[in-house]
């Protein structure tokens, strides 16, 4: 078995375990009511964090580059209620154009 295959299988096993842990241990049991407001805020907190790190970091450096133009395009598109695919195309186009224009 090669290192590549072993890596593939280990990463798969770890991911399956991470995803499955909650449902395996707590599956079918209701969360305490007190946690409901927290769970509702989980999506905004996590997605904002994913967006921020994907747009403003490169490795461990904070950067401001053409991806910011894509983010602005995406926010405008989403705020206007544009179709998801259109938002994605607009974001990619804005990033590609900024990359051409900016030094």
């Amino acid at each position: 078995m090669t290192t590549g295959w072993l890596t593939v299988l280990l990463v798969g096993a770890v991911t399956i375990a991470l995803k499955g842990a909650g449902p395996l241990l707590l599956g079918g049991r209701a969360h305490p009511r007190r946690l409901f407001p927290v769970l509702r805020l989980l999506a905004p907190a996590l997605f904002a964090a994913l967006i921020a790190t994907q747009v403003f970091t490169h490795g461990r450096n904070l950067v401001l580059d053409a991806r910011a133009a894509g983010l602005i395009a995406a926010i405008v598109g989403a705020a206007l209620g544009a179709r998801p695919l259109l938002v994605l195309v607009a974001a990619c186009a804005a990033t590609a154009i900024s990359r051409l224009v900016l030094p």
């Binding site: 999506a43 905004p44 997605f47 904002a48 994913l50 967006i51 994907q54 747009v55 053409a66 991806r67 894509g70 983010l71 395009a73 995406a74 926010i75 598109g77 989403a78 998801p84 938002v87 994605l88 607009a90 974001a91 990619c92 186009a93 804005a94 990033t95 590609a96 154009i97 990359r99």
Partner: peptide, 14 residues
């Protein structure tokens, strides 16, 4: 600009 696709995807989801 495909590296902007994922953040845009997450904006749509957010």
């Amino acid at each position: 600009g495909l590296d902007a696709a994922f953040p845009a995807l997450f904006v749509v989801l957010l």
